[in-house]
Nucleic acid binder design. Structure first.
Length: 264
DNA sequence: ATGTCAGCGGCACGCTGA
């Protein structure tokens, strides 16, 4: 069972690339972030034409998450929860569309787009840390259910120094502040397995390259898209990968897809 | 030192968020 995460940075702008990626790599489950689309603008029809069914949680202009399953291969999806109940950093704006959880053929899937948190310090960084705390609480509930579970998405956290091309360039960024890293480390301390880290213990694997400053051409990237596995899923981990070549295509997202394959 | 992109409102391009 292949399970993937892909921050697509706008589903309207990225639809040709998304369709290409689905057709070429056929993940059983594809978690998408930054669809940047309201619910009614989601291109469900075009995704169905590729043999995928989907659930989505959108909002206007920003954020937004979706989970796609390969219905052609017999996968079915049932929504479990949307949102973590954390209000956005501005007064009265309510909750942003960043979390969607579902059951897919006996595996719990939690798709997330964690707040970026810049600039820090400030209200956006405070919001990021509050969101991470709420996520940890939800992960503890899932853990207590003792179901096979995969928590994946754009965490907007660079976990270790060797997860970035330059510590110096990123040192003041919200993505690698000690508070962000400590909150991420707590997920691992709770028993979740960072799939990419397990297969690349010395780091040096990127999932994001900025559009600016020729970052892609210079391989100036870092690792912020993560796949966390419950113990049952960690035991079934067969392979992991980053579809790096897709970052180099025309009109690409600034993130590359990341995936795991679990034994049946 | 700088370098980009997507979506919005609304129809030109400045603003926001990343």
């Amino acid at each position: 069972m292949k399970i993937a995460t892909f921050n697509i940075n706008g589903i309207k702008a990225r639809l040709p690339r998304l369709k290409e990626w689905l057709a070429e790599t056929r993940p059983a489950v594809a978690c998408l972030q930054e669809i940047k689309s309201q619910d009614e603008g989601f291109p469900a029809g075009e995704i169905e034409e590729l043999g995928y069914s989907a659930i989505w949680h959108g909002q206007k202009a920003f954020n937004g998450v979706a989970i796609l399953v390969d219905s052609q291969a017999g996968y079915t999806i049932t929504e479990v929860q949307r949102g973590l109940g954390v209000d956005g950093p501005k007064d009265g704006e309510g909750e942003q569309a960043r979390y969607l959880e579902a059951e897919v053929n006996g595996v719990r899937i939690a798709c997330l787009y964690l707040p970026n948190g810049n600039p820090q310090p400030g209200p956006k960084f405070t919001y990021k840390l509050a969101w991470m705390e709420a996520l940890r609480a939800r992960m503890a509930q899932i853990w207590a259910e003792e179901v096979p579970a995969v928590v994946l998405g754009d965490f907007n956290v660079i976990p270790e120094d060797d997860d970035t091309w330059s510590v110096k360039a990123m040192q003041d960024d919200a993505l690698m502040q000690p508070e962000s890293r400590d909150a991420y480390a707590r997920f691992l301390n709770d028993g979740w397995t960072d799939a990419l880290r397990t297969h690349n213990p010395r780091g040096g694997v990127w999932t994001y390259w900025d559009y600016q400053a020729g970052a892609w051409q210079r391989d100036h990237g870092f690792r912020i898209d993560h796949i966390l596995l419950s113990p049952e899923c960690a035991d079934r981990l067969e392979s992991v990968g980053v579809d790096k070549a897709h970052r180099g295509r025309e009109k690409a997202s600034d993130h590359a897809p990341v995936w795991v394959r679990l034994k049946a």
